[in-house]
Design a binder for these strands. Structure first.
Lengths: 343, 343
DNA sequence: TTGTATGCGTTATCAC
DNA sequence: GTGATAACGCATACAA
């Protein structure tokens, strides 16, 4: 029974209800003697204050929430862990909420924020669209967008963000392949209708790199992973199979995520190809798994730790009245064992 | 500003506060005309009821929480996703909480449960120790343990559980290697002092298989992954390096998780060994990544989907007054490309 | 069918 | 130093 409340504690320790509250919250004066007396009772009965009542009274909770679109994305794992630790170290509990594919992450965040009186929130994943100024105003709670931004369509003082320059990094990765002598470069991405996500931006970077190098863009080389299979290994595997069939002369593949890249690599290996001898593969994200794959995968490494730390730090700052900021982190191309110099 | 409340809505729609509440909760009678009128105002002002107040009043929330020890364990990913979907499909929001390494998951759950008036909870990961009857009684909320149990030290009507038989599966995996002709079998596990976790049970199964087959247990072949490095790929990598140095004649390795197995495989590959020609590797869990590794990894596949579904189903049953249950699922040894028949 | 009044467990403002 | 007591926003028994 968790039915024991502050009134019970007050009665049991023979003091007033306000005194118990003071002991609990270390606010106001209370003599050492009564403090000890009350604490004893609290410990004895294992009393834990009810947060709902507390939050209701304070019209604000001490809860920070993390909304994650696609919580099973391995790239998010590390960031989730760090965010959790950082938030905890600042004395707040972290509520993690998965946002399912069909929900709008900001709408969901607004709803949850109002319902739970959140004091701050981080949105990770998601898309660049659907973020309107009205929504941020309605939210009215410090908010940090992680890995996405609003593309400048919203007053930037309404939220903070931590991102990378997806278009630029996609451009760089493609350029790297081109510099290594590749011309027939496949691209694996996730097709989401009418929604701007990081992978679309990376795709744009891919296109730009080709065009700047006067390499014709070939539709056949571009493979949207089948949405129904999701964004996992299997999607990369299937997409790569089709890609190889359509393009026997393809020498390299750029996948918009490491997970997709690993699926693609497996498909190539299964087809009897060697990596990188027969086909080069580069992924994106820099998840640990890419490092331990066989062969070790080249990838565009996003500084996940730094990004997560920045996000929490920005949020904490905003909660203390500091200004919003928009941080764009640099990625690094990890040149390892899966891209071969041609000729 | 989320400062708009039920009283405002009542005033704005020219009705009483109770009527708004009735409209909101679809309880009691309310004429279609006023219902519509109220709904219009609600939509217009984007009113969202305050959950803290609601939960406080109801002395119970509609929140189900999932406590995960080591949320970054890839094996948990899929289960988290399914649990989230299942819980949502039953109309409850799911709060996911990571339990950090140093916290006792049950203590944490008790505290959170009381603070938030949870109506049900699932604990995933964690250890077999520390679960006492007193704690479950204090919890007083439907609770399902997933992947661990209390080892019979607690009245089984106080909670439900969904597990596999870790000792037996560890035994089977080892036996499989022995049947394939291996005798020098390394074991990779995570050493946690004085705590019984699934990996200790798998270790016991390993020992039993050796003993039953009259294979001497060799301390040199047993490698605890360094705790400070964690349970990730890197830990498996490092542990395997030491293992290979100490045992040049080792022909097979059984890792207590796929993640550890992948790290170990990479270490073997880096040392110039072929898998499975020079050394066989088998993991545990059956994460998707094992299937897409190169080579495809043999593993003890845990029915993650089934386990997650069962957990939610049991919890839901308990919330409706049904009895507790203790489900032990069967694992399957996936025989793929990383174990070789010796001679 | 609708409105009023009470209490859920806290915190904080007062008096004492 | 301490103890009543009024909110916080909502659901509901009860009266109308």
């Amino acid at each position: 029974m968790g039915n024991i409340n502050i009134k019970d504690i007050a009665k049991l320790s023979g003091v007033g209800i306000a005194t118990v509250s003071r002991v609990l919250n270390q606010t106001g004066y209370v003599s050492e003697k009564t403090r000890k007396k009350v604490m004893d009772v609290i410990n004895q009965y294992n009393y834990i204050p009810n947060n709902n009542a507390r939050n209701l009274k304070l019209t604000q909770s001490e809860n920070i929430a993390l909304f994650v679109k696609y919580i099973s994305n391995p790239f998010f794992e590390k960031m989730i862990e760090i965010i959790q630790q950082e938030v905890a170290s600042r004395g707040y509990p972290l509520l993690i909420q998965n946002v399912d594919e069909n929900s709008d992450e900001l709408d969901f965040a607004i709803s949850e924020s109002m319902q739970r009186n959140l004091c701050g929130l981080i949105i990770m994943g998601g898309s660049y669209s659907s973020y309107t100024e009205a929504k941020f105003r309605q939210l009215g709670t410090p908010c940090v967008l992680l890995t996405v931004n609003s593309k400048g369509s919203v007053d930037p003082t309404l939220y903070s963000s931590v991102t990378i320059n997806d278009e630029l990094e996609g451009y760089r990765a493609t350029n790297y392949l081109i510099e290594m002598g590749h011309r027939k470069i496949g691209f694996l991405y996730k097709d989401v209708e009418n929604v701007v996500t990081p992978n679309i931006l990376r795709y744009q970077g891919y296109i730009r790199a080709l065009e700047e190098n006067k390499i014709p863009v070939d539709e056949k080389l571009i493979a949207p992973a089948i949405p129904s299979i999701g964004m996992g290994f299997r999607a990369g595997f299937q997409a790569m199979k089709g890609l190889m069939q359509r393009n026997p002369d393809m020498t390299a593949v750029f996948a918009f995520s490491d997970v997709l890249a690993i699926g693609a690599a497996k498909a190539a290996l299964n087809a009897g190809k060697q990596i990188p001898e027969d086909i080069s593969v580069i992924g994106f994200d820099g998840i640990e798994m890419a490092e331990f794959y066989n062969p070790t995968l080249d990838t565009v490494y996003q500084p996940a730790t730094e990004m997560a730390l920045s996000a929490v730090s920005l949020l904490h700052g905003m909660m203390n009245g500091e200004r919003t900021q928009h941080i764009v982190c640099d990625s690094v191309i990890m040149k390892r064992g899966s891209v071969k110099m041609l000729r």
